[in-house]
């Protein structure tokens, strides 16, 4: 990317909390995302990885404006330099901004999938062309979601995003589980094509191999915070190339690496500690880690949220 090129999407210290009934009629605010910051530039695939419950899906939902009504959002989401308001979103969703949801439950169970893919802005011809590209047979358009295998349903979800036409930003929330390696790779190539045509792709995934193989940069989430942004090459190298202790622990746990987990689990939303959310599991923890919010800072061409990283 040329330096200075304006990001398609930038997210600045996004925070999301849910107002929930605690006991009886008493309400409590549950902070689930605390500080997410990232940007997606034209022509790049930004991979987002992190634990379940780290806020990856909620980020996607916050960008798309489909959080439930009891959610409160703070921080900023900018699309091509301007705040992504409800009104702007309405004109962009399904046209410039495409969303590939995580679960096949997002398909309407009572509508044939061909019609769902055509949706509001697509055409029948575009739908047929896309089905052919994704190896969905001629009969599939007339099927209902319950008649699809997991992998077919994934491809249908993918088709809903590709049908809109002039896509500038793709937000994909776990698009590949259930696909075989060949099909997953093919889907990733389609993401790459979106990016190579100048769009930005925000790819939320558990599949680290895919992220490393096809993303340009990787954002690492932990307990509702972005802890590091590194290049895919740095992440593949692991160890000292990474900036945050959590990123290194993540890399060590991969089956193709040492397959060695660190103990413990991510703090649950609502019981997030003061200061660094990773402190309780971190081998490098000191008093300084617990003293207030840790800001995101630039380091070695990437970004990190850690007081010790050097």
């Amino acid at each position: 990317m040329a330096p200075g090129m304006e990001p398609i999407l930038s997210v600045e210290e996004l925070a999301v909390s849910f107002s929930m009934y605690d006991r009886g009629l008493r309400k409590a605010d549950l902070a689930v995302i605390r500080s997410l910051s990232l940007d997606v530039r034209p022509g790049e695939v930004l991979g987002v990885i992190g634990s379940s419950g780290s806020g990856k899906s909620l980020l996607a939902h916050a960008i798309m404006g489909i959080l439930p009504p009891n959610a409160t959002v703070r921080g900023e989401v900018l699309y091509r330099g301007e705040p992504l308001t409800e009104a702007r979103l309405r004109g962009l969703r399904g046209r410039e901004i495409a969303f590939i949801p995580q679960s096949v439950d997002y398909l309407d169970p009572l509508m044939r999938v061909g019609r769902q893919v055509v949706g509001t802005f697509g055409t029948r011809a575009a739908q047929e062309a896309i089905f052919e590209r994704y190896r969905l047979g001629a009969g599939v358009a007339r099927m209902y979601p319950f008649q699809l295998s997991g992998g077919m349903a994934r491809r249908v979800l993918f088709a809903t995003a590709a049908v809109g036409g002039d896509v500038k930003l793709v937000v994909a929330d776990e698009p590949t589980p259930g696909l075989g390696p060949d099909l997953a790779a093919k889907m990733m190539k389609h993401f790459r094509e979106f990016a190579d045509a100048g769009a930005g792709v925000l790819l939320i995934t558990h599949d680290v191999d895919l992220a490393l193989g096809y993303a340009d940069r990787i954002a690492v989430f932990y307990a509702g915070a972005t802890v590091e942004i590194a290049t895919a090459a740095e992440f593949a190298a692991g160890g000292a190339a990474l900036r945050h202790p959590y990123s290194r622990a993540f890399s060590d746990a991969l089956p193709q690496n040492r397959f060695l987990p660190i103990p413990g689990s991510q703090p649950y939303a609502g019981s997030l500690p003061e200061g660094c959310p990773f402190a309780a599991r971190c081998p490098e923890r000191t008093e300084a880690c617990l003293a207030g919010d840790v800001p995101m800072r630039d380091l070695r061409g990437g970004k990190v949220r850690c007081v010790h990283a050097a």
């Binding site: 634990s51 379940s52 589980p177 558990h206 746990a253 991969l254 089956p255 397959f259 987990p261 689990s265």
Partner: peptide, 17 residues
């Protein structure tokens, strides 16, 4: 049946170990 597909890698390694 694909039991760790939806887990993060640290949890996946913990559960498989």
């Amino acid at each position: 049946d694909e039991i760790s597909t939806m887990l993060d890698v640290i949890t996946q390694a913990q559960i498989w170990q």
